[in-house]
Design a protein around this nucleic acid. Structure first.
Lengths: 149, 149
DNA sequence: TGGGAACCAATGTTGCGACATATAATGTAT
DNA sequence: ATACATTATATGTCGCAACATTGGTTCCCA
């Protein structure tokens, strides 16, 4: 649907304002769909992303610092997201022996299994972008990169 | 900066996955900058957006329903955002005489004045997109519209 | 080696998104 | 007119973002 109709706004000041709103609105649209896909598994998107990072490290542990570095949202509260995952026994937390300030966080077998079950979800959702051609998707990425230059 | 560096991820499965992440990441980047611009004025972005809608209606009142319809995020809690604005005397709330279920919400003079002071902020931020040409911005919007088709 | 700087994680607070439920007012059908 | 559905808003709960602060640990160097 055209942005004008989605947000009930008739006109935009210029192409920049419209593109700005469109990026924000489309991101929300994508995230909402993705979150809905993970909901049946009791996972929120931030929790899913942390699990993915932990799987990437497996069987090595990760620290909270490493999670923050790797997360899309640097200012999120990784520590409290790990709380939730720990309560669901999807990760373990253990004081790092070589540096007792840090905490070793590891994904459990249950966590790995849950990721296996949800394997196709994220890809499936990215394929919501398949009304674009691969070239258009690449072009979109380039334009977005340019914004943040 | 290139997305790969921003999120410390070396490779993407395909152009679709990369574009998906890039939309989400760029939206967060834009919103964070915009929120920072409004912070000195004690306004959050949802509060600002509600004020803008109310100015659009002024001097007619708006209802909570109308706010929800017009907001980017339909599932937000408009009622509680109005609470915050009311506490800051930027809006007034009054039971609608002709339909006592509804509530007439109006922007106050203080609210209008605050919008005047922040007039340039949103535009200024959209101009963060000015490393794009107007054509590129339009093209970006078209690609995003296509995603949501 | 003693003390302050730097580091790492946890916690407290505020505001919002998502979702379910409550409460009150209005509309409608018989 | 009464019962029932519908509408409009408010409220409760959970999880997360943003930001500040705290507490414990390690580092470094004078």
């Amino acid at each position: 649907m055209k942005l004008e109709d989605e947000i009930q706004q008739r006109a935009f000041k210029n192409a920049y304002q419209k593109a700005h709103l469109n990026v924000v609105f489309t991101a929300g649209w994508l995230q909402q769909r993705l979150a809905a896909a993970f909901k049946p598994y009791g996972l929120t998107l931030p929790q899913y992303n942390v699990l993915r990072i932990l799987r990437g490290q497996h069987p090595k542990p990760a620290t909270v610092n490493l999670l923050i570095e790797r997360m899309l949202d640097k200012t999120s509260n990784a520590s409290r997201i790990v709380d939730k995952l720990e309560a669901k026994h999807l990760v373990t937390r253990q004081i790092c022996p070589s540096n007792r300030r840090a905490v070793d966080i590891r994904i459990t077998e249950a966590g790995l299994e849950l990721l296996r079950q949800t394997e196709s979800l994220a890809d499936g959702q990215s394929q919501g972008l398949h009304n674009l051609s691969a070239e258009e998707a690449a072009q979109l990425s380039d334009l977005l990169d340019k914004i943040r230059d």
